[in-house]
Design a protein around this nucleic acid. Structure first.
Lengths: 224, 224
DNA sequence: CCAAAAGTGTTGCACCTACACCCATGT
DNA sequence: ACATGGGTGTAGGTGCAACACTTTTGG
């Protein structure tokens, strides 16, 4: 692919999309990648994305990419960073997103995966096109970071969940075990969760089911 | 200004540039703005910026804007956010930067301010073009935030400084008074500063002069 | 009765805040 | 001498991590 030196730069939008998958030991943080169908990096895995459409907003374009890749709307979507590739005359705006794991499962069962899309654990990525590996690492860093002071992890779960399920998400995202009792106290003190009257049963004492407090925001003001 | 619907979007780069100015009571956080010379928002104040040049990198363009506005190179430069204005067919990548206050003073004394550039305290901004006011508020939020866990504030001072001078910068950035003794302990425990053998004299006990420890980074991995 | 997870209580440590106090200089 | 800021010491409080312990279910 050759580009005339004075073409105006084109604008691409890409998305690092995260969800969690139940694993045997602990859960895994998963990300969907697409196999490239053209040069450069033909047949390599890459972040899903596309060109910014005429009269299209950046976030809209990111949502469109998400829908094309997963058939779903994100429960969280935030801009990550804007990269330039002066030699290729491309500026690429990368977003990161969270999807509810139950919706991902349902969608896969119903519609299967689109051609050329595959989910990988972030701990075991294949070779990636461009510098997409370091972009993903940066996105993971942001996710971890934000999980510390915000309630984002909730966006990976259904509306209703037990504390153990939520804790498992945090453990997956943060990559370390958390003390159940301390975790409970932290969240019960935070106003972020509302207890329901329902319980999840199993071979153990029933666990109370919670939902998010819709009043509570996800911290940090955002650009606007 | 009218734009054909199918023009490719143009890419603008803007910079929110910060420095501190000694005030009578406490110091002030200052930001340079430029008066617009064309519609829309003719004659209103706005963030300095310009179009991304052919084959120019984003950060390079931000540095160029900085030099044009202040005649200086920043001691800190970081991408803030990318905004779109679909109706105007513009995508604008905003950076934020820190300048050493001594260099700003020296430059003003030597060369004066460029035409149409004026520094304002962030606490007393004029009416601004576009949504630049909220962009500046977001940049201030990021600066405050980062000052908490990083050593950025140092980028606003000369190479050598006393603890009181550094504390004053933190107080300006964070907008609150800090306890001198606790501030000292915090930084002395952090490895971020290296004591020199010099002292700053005045009508009081001489204050030891410090410099930054070049080994210490400014936290957070950045996108690459 | 036992295993397993839910949920409660308690203790200790680390860190931060506030503030009392001494030190060294210029005027 | 004294005013001013530099610099040290210390006591109280807050929050978190670790862990012992009780509770409630299914098998």
């Amino acid at each position: 692919m050759t580009v005339a030196t004075n073409d105006p730069p084109r604008i691409a939008v890409q998305a690092a999309i995260f969800s969690v998958r139940a694993g045997t030991d602990r859960d895994e943080l998963m990300i969907p990648l697409v196999r490239r169908t053209r040069e450069p990096f033909l047949d390599q895995w890459a972040l899903p994305g596309g060109w910014l459409g005429d009269a299209e907003g950046l976030e809209t374009a990111a949502g469109r990419t998400l829908a094309a890749t997963t058939g779903l709307a994100p429960s969280w979507l935030e801009q990550l960073y804007t990269f330039d590739n002066a030699s290729a005359r491309v500026v690429s705006v990368v977003y990161w997103a969270l999807l509810r794991s139950d919706l991902v499962e349902a969608q896969r069962a119903a519609a299967g995966s689109p051609e050329n899309v595959e989910w990988f654990p972030v701990e075991a990525l294949p070779d990636l096109a461009f510098d997409h590996r370091s972009i993903i690492e940066y996105a993971v860093w942001r996710l971890r970071n934000k999980a510390g002071y915000s309630r984002i992890a909730a966006a990976l779960l259904p509306d209703e969940f037990t504390l153990a399920e939520l804790r498992s998400v945090y453990e997956t995202v943060l990559g370390k075990r958390l003390d159940p009792s301390n975790f409970r106290r932290l969240l019960e003190g935070s106003e972020a969760l509302v207890p329901t009257e329902d319980f999840r049963t199993g071979p153990h004492r029933p666990a109370r089911i919670f939902r998010y407090n819709a009043e509570v925001d996800f911290a940090d003001p955002g650009p606007l």
